[in-house]
Amino acid sequence: MDIELVKFMFILTVMSLYLNFAITLYGVVAKVNLVKKLIALTILQDTVNVFTVLIGYRLWRPGLILQPPALTDMNPTPEIIKDFVERSVDPLPQAFVLTAIVIGLAVTLFLTTIVLHVNYHFKTVNVDEIGGMKRRYIHEEAV
C-alpha cells in the first residue's frame, strides 16, 4: 500500500468536509428560502456526523484487516478479543453519531412542521418578506 496516497486521500476527505461545512453554513445563514435553509441544515448535520466517524478511523497496516466494531465469535478466547481490539475501528464516535443522527432527524421533523405552518400563515417562505411583515407589526404594536 502507498502511504502517501492514503494520507493525501484522507486529508482530501477532511478538507472536502470542511468545504461542505462552510457551504452549508452559508446556506443556513444567508439563504432566504426556508426550504433551502432546511436542506442546507440537514447536509450540515450530516457533514458533522461524517467528520465524527472519520475521527474514529485508523490507518490500515499491511497484514491488518479492519473490521466494524462487532465481535463475530460468540465464545471468544482472550486471544480473539485481543485480535478484535487490534483490528476494530473506534466504536464511540459511531455511538455518538447514531445519537446525533436521530437528534438531527427529530429537529428536522419539527422544522418541517414549522415551515408548513409558516407557509399556511404567511403564504410565503421567504424570510426577508416575513421579516418585513414583522417589522411592520412590531412598529404598529409599539406605537
Binding site: V28, L34, K37, L111, I114, V118, H121, K134, Y137
Partner: peptide, 11 residues
C-alpha cells in the same frame, strides 16, 4: 407571530 417566533428560534 407565535409560529414566526418559533421559526426564528428553531432554525
Amino acid at each position: 407571530w407565535a409560529i414566526e417566533a418559533s421559526m426564528a428560534y428553531s432554525f
